[in-house]
Write a protein that binds this DNA or RNA. Structure first.
Lengths: 355, 355
DNA sequence: CTGTTAGCGCATTCAC
DNA sequence: GTGAATGCGCTAACAG
């Protein structure tokens, strides 16, 4: 960091609390009290300190403050990736809401790897974060342990289960998966396929799949009759997975994808292969990303309130810090958005029979 | 932060450097030296300290370290929004690269408002960040001034102009705009429209527009013959803007949108209104978002290396901190990705003439 | 090579 | 109500 500019100006020494006190003609203790809104201060002193701080452009040194008061106003967040809109938006909501309370957000990514998450969490502890926002309920035991021992509160998102955390903000992934199954059953489908995200270390993907399969099971459709393919959330993978599914016999007439990203790839594949959607196969996504309305046909999907989840996480975190409450669960609603990529099975059957 | 769990366990006192030293049987100074990779340490002592730290699960207190060493290893980033993939990805690249050097990223958003950016920058200074990554070259004078006085290095992204910053990482927005104009001219177009982002306080949007118009001007197409509509980056706005453009006389045969988001809206409008793309009108976007390949027809657009920009910003920042260099400009290439949403004007003319 | 000493800037006890 | 003194945990001078 160059402290000398090209014009030769030497950087003015950074102004400290002592400088403010000096200018205000009081002690640093008084100045500190004023700046921290401590009540027991004379109105006049108060005025002068505030003025001095303003004139000098005083900016408190957070490191010192944190060291002394053992409170950093720092919040850490570890998400799988910033490349996925759903996580980015969550962080956006979180950051915005937290900023209102003077808290800053340190961000880091795990790339869906619980070991990397553990490492990031460790670093965050070192940074003195007071809370950590994580995605999902499944984490490395050491992650949670390290956090706990450091007195860092843990907020889980994208889940409605508290698990070992202090707060959970999200929705019921199983229920959401089941709702998709029931919708498709109502449409008369009996042969299903699924393109799930990678379930290892990803409870959201796991639960969506399990909820979907359980609801089908209840309807008398055996697990072994349903082909489930797992793949990382990438368009190409959705395309490839759909290709595989379309080569099975009997071919499914309805395919549930664990993410819109995968669903969009699936639709793209059908488009290229001349398979009619929803004529021959219905496709359902998850997340309700913007792209859902951009594909043709538009995608039936489950809306996930990403930004709201971030905001709710912020609120939960603040309440935890508030003192009284120790555990908080905030369940947010999801809803199935029915668009053009799904239809009753009748059409599919009609198309298939002529053959 | 509850320090007592429901099981009644009292939180074990957080382990400090002193504890590590005690266990290793040396002084805190030695322990500190080992942990900081200081060379002048005995191999045996080193081993023992490392072991002790590991066993105790020692995590250095960054506040204390920062206070003492006057270095926080904190980097701030202020972007317009996390809802836009291009910024989110940039931050992703930045964070990942910086993590390798032990630096943490504090994130904040300005919502395209330079006043909010100024406020965020102020807070970041208070947090002790050593560098700030900003988007674009246009900022509130006070923002830059406050940063400078605090000795915080400033990295501008999405621009190839240094301006008042210490480093610039990005591309030439004017050039990119011009390249679109030239491509369309080559295709024989002579009647143009543009849907630009809001240019106020947004130099990227401004320069893309200006580059586009300047190149057209060079080709003898007067500014007054080109309808330019400004709108925030939202699909709906792209749709509405396209509607307006399609109602002008003479109607443009080529429309350049300042963002894929807008372009996608434009194409959607045409789709609904029965206007052939590229038959009656060619559409070009900007950013090369994933959606570009998902619309029908696929979108011709300018590829922007978002993640690479974040990584390059990290590298520049590290080099600045390294000492010797004082100003760094890293120019990244953009390229026009030609897909199905554009075509030669001949087709458009043929279609129009019959009327 | 290693230990001792002295603060970094601030919030917070204590006296007054 | 206000000021003086203490140390948060750590690193960087010094001695040894």
């Amino acid at each position: 960091m160059s402290r000398v500019r090209t014009n030769g100006t030497v950087e003015p020494r950074v102004v400290k609390l002592k400088d403010v006190a000096l200018r205000a003609g009081c002690s640093v203790a008084t100045a500190s009290r004023v700046l921290n809104g401590h009540p027991t201060v004379g109105a006049m002193e108060k005025e002068r300190v505030l003025a001095a701080a303003d004139q000098l452009g005083y900016v408190p040194n957070n490191s010192a403050r944190a060291l002394r008061s053992q409170s950093t106003s720092l919040v850490g967040v570890v998400i799988p990736t910033l490349d996925h809109a759903i996580y980015a938006k969550m962080v956006g909501g979180l950051q915005e809401r937290l900023a209102q309370s003077g808290k800053a957000v340190i961000i880091s990514t795990s790339d869906y790897d619980l070991d990397r998450e553990r490492m990031q969490a460790r670093l965050l502890v070192g940074r003195g974060v007071e809370s950590v926002v994580l995605v999902g309920i499944e984490h490395h035991p050491e992650t949670l342990d390290a956090l706990r021992r450091a007195g860092v509160s843990q907020i889980f998102t994208y889940t409605n289960e508290l698990g070992d955390g202090d707060a959970a903000v999200g929705f019921d992934n199983r229920l959401a998966g089941a709702s998709v199954a029931r919708f498709l059953l109502d449409q008369g489908h009996i042969r299903f396929g699924m393109v799930a995200g990678v379930t290892r270390g990803n409870d959201r993907a796991t639960q969506r799949r399990d909820g979907f399969l359980a609801a089908l099971d209840e309807a008398g459709i055996a697990r072994r009759d349903i082909v489930v393919i797992e793949a990382p959330y990438r368009i190409e993978n959705g395309r490839a997975a759909m290709q595989s599914l379309m080569q099975t016999h009997p071919r499914p007439t309805a395919v549930f994808c664990g993410s819109d990203i995968l669903a969009v790839g699936a639709i793209k594949y059908c488009d290229g292969a001349g398979i009619a959607v929803p004529g021959e196969v219905s496709v359902v996504g998850f997340d309700n990303l913007e792209v859902a309305e951009l594909v043709t046909p538009e995608l039936t999907t489950v809306d996930v309130p990403a930004r709201e989840m971030g905001e709710a996480a912020a609120v939960a975190l603040l309440r935890l810090g508030g003192g009284k409450e120790t555990f908080i669960v905030t369940e947010l609603p999801t809803r199935l958005i029915v668009r053009g990529s799904t239809g009753p099975v009748a059409i599919a059957s009609a198309r298939l029979r002529p053959a």
